[in-house]
């Protein structure tokens, strides 16, 4: 299991993937809003989405898990 984590604090604006989806490295999985700016979160690696750990509107801190990916 691998985790995609937030590179900065912010609010989850939208989520582009759901459980069971397969994602590839570089794909945008969600958008965070921080300091009045939209920041796309790209998957650093590919895999199957096991769990989306946040909801739209959640506030996340740097390092928080956003999405858990399985093989």
């Amino acid at each position: 299991m691998k985790q995609l984590t937030a590179s900065m604090a912010g609010t989850v604006l939208n989520i582009a993937v759901s459980e069971g989806d397969s994602v590839s490295a570089g794909q945008t999985v969600m958008t965070l809003e921080s300091m009045k700016m939209e920041i796309p979160v790209e998957a650093e690696f590919g895999g199957n989405v096991e769990k989306v750990d946040v909801e739209v509107g959640s506030f996340v801190n740097e390092g928080d898990t956003l999405v858990t990916l399985g093989e």
Partner: peptide, 11 residues
């Protein structure tokens, strides 16, 4: 407070 290359914010 931002990355000087990507311009992404840095709180």
């Amino acid at each position: 407070a931002e990355d000087p290359k990507t311009f992404f914010p840095s709180p």
